[in-house]
Design a protein around this nucleic acid. Sequence first.
DNA 1: GGAGCGATGTCCT
DNA 2: GGACATCGCTCCG
Length: 205
Amino acid sequence: MSATNKVVSLLPRSFYEHSPEVTAKNLLGKVLVRDYQGQRLSGRIVETEAYFGLDDPAAHASAGRTSRNAVLFGLPGVAYVYFIYGMYYCLNVSCEPEGQAGCVLIRAIEPLDGTEIMAKLRHLPSVAKSRLLASGPGRLCQALDITRSSHNGVDVTSTSSDLRIEDDGYQPEELMVTPRVGIRHAKDRLARFLIPGNPYISRKF
DNA sequence: GGAGCGATGTCCT
DNA sequence: GGACATCGCTCCG
């Protein structure tokens, strides 16, 4: 009976029914969980980006619905995973009500559970340089073995999914907003959110 | 420690 | 055929 027991809960679908900006902010500090071969891999979300719909030229949904981006137009709280630069994957979570195409890109996590396995999946010699484990959208997908074929369309609000997002009660003291990283269009839009000072964000600002 | 650049597959025009 | 929400390696200081 410890008074320090944390109450951990799965975030419900209603958490994702808001705008990409609100959802991206609210996801900071939450815990991304991956069940991998009976092991729990997890990390705290420390950096996100908001992507919008038809009015956002940087978004995959900007040209309308295609087979690739169909998940974005569906239920909120569903993983959208795409393949980029011939070798990496990026993980997003759809938000806004069904029919609207907003999403949040998860750009970096602070590793919590299963760091040895993450290092193996990342082909790193050890967990020593922990910032290399999952600080960056391509890295975190590799560290958690997330691919388009295995996780695009997975419901992250379901207890039966092997990819979920939990709330362990942690609240970041401070948030920061900056322009998004690595895009050509709409470079000035302030839609990248991070926990300032956290060493696991993908780049400085 | 930072700028430059090549690797590499899928999607859309 | 070109773009691409990246990463890690070189080369230079």
